[in-house]
Amino acid sequence: MSEHKFKIVECPRDAMQGLHNFIPTDLKAEYLNLLLQVGFDTLDFGSFVSPRAIPQLADTAEVLGKLDLSTTNTKLLAIIANLKGVKLAVNHEAISYLGFPFSISETFQQRNTNSSIEQSLATVEEMLSLCAKHNKTAVVYLSMGFGNPYGDEWNYEIVEKWADVLVDKGVEILSLADTVGISTLEKINEILPKLLSKFSHSEIGIHLHSTPAERFEKIEAAYNSGVKRIDSALKGFGGCPMAADDLTGNIATEDVINFLNSKGENLNLNMAKWNEAMVLSGKIFR
């Protein structure tokens, strides 16, 4: 049993964003409202990015207006990719967290946010300033945290260097993101304990992508490293479209729940609402 409660971050935003058929706003809200009643720590529910880049989530502000937060303690997280997105997101009182994908691969940072790593660092600084003014907390994802498919240099020292820089800037929550599903047990076992030890006063989470066959062992490796925050998505839907393998998706939340239950973690989840969400997901992820 861990002394700090384990945080599950359910990620319907990541699951939905790549779907080609537009999910009606009311159906999105119905699904999110069910997930809000399950009792997760955080719901990564939407994003304030260009509708041209992610048309599926162009209705995030409208969806937000349809969410019932009166009977849930789950906090809302929205992804942003630039300062325009930050300025939109901080004006919504219901949002607790702003998430920014900070890539330690220069190539991916350009592809993902159309900016360099240095420009992205400036965005993070502005985001931190605006979050402080609007009572929000920034979550920064170290994307391509386990390597990249572009040939950009990667090693643990690079991961630690950028974690150092971001923590020095005032980032309190870092999530190591395996953007294209190339993490291995060896890398998880090497990197996470070192990060957790060095940045013991920060919250370090993990956002893994995986094939179904490797999900459980990656969850186990992350847990054994001491991590207390994990991102996942119902049925493992979604993931990065740039992953080489079509089977590579998010870690499945039900696998995380089953594993943590087996370890005696007190998750205090409403499984009846979870099962309702599992059924409703069939209308969304066709």
Rank of each mutant, 00 (worst) to 15 (best):
H4R: 15
F6I: 10
V9G: 02
Q17W: 00
F22W: 06
F22Q: 15
F22M: 14
T25L: 13
E30C: 00
L34F: 06
V38G: 08
V38D: 11
D41T: 12
P51I: 07
I54S: 12
D59S: 15
T60H: 04
V63E: 05
L64T: 04
G65F: 03
D68L: 00
S70Y: 11
K75C: 03
A78I: 06
I79H: 12
N82H: 01
L83G: 11
K87D: 13
E93T: 08
E93W: 00
A94P: 12
S96N: 13
S96T: 14
F102R: 03
F102A: 06
I104C: 13
Q109W: 02
N112P: 12
T113F: 09
T113Y: 02
N114W: 00
S120F: 01
L121D: 00
V124R: 11
H134C: 05
N135Y: 04
T137M: 10
A138S: 13
Y141E: 04
M144L: 08
F146N: 00
D152G: 07
N155C: 10
I158M: 13
E160Q: 13
V167E: 14
V167T: 15
D168E: 14
I173K: 01
E186I: 07
I191N: 08
P193I: 07
L196C: 05
L196A: 02
S202K: 09
G205F: 13
G205Y: 13
L208E: 11
I219S: 09
E220Q: 14
A222S: 15
Y223Q: 03
I230R: 09
S232H: 06
S232E: 08
G236Q: 08
P241W: 01
A243R: 01
D245H: 01
T253C: 15
E254T: 10
G264I: 05
N266T: 05
M271A: 03
N275S: 12
N275P: 07
E276Y: 05
S281R: 08
F285E: 05
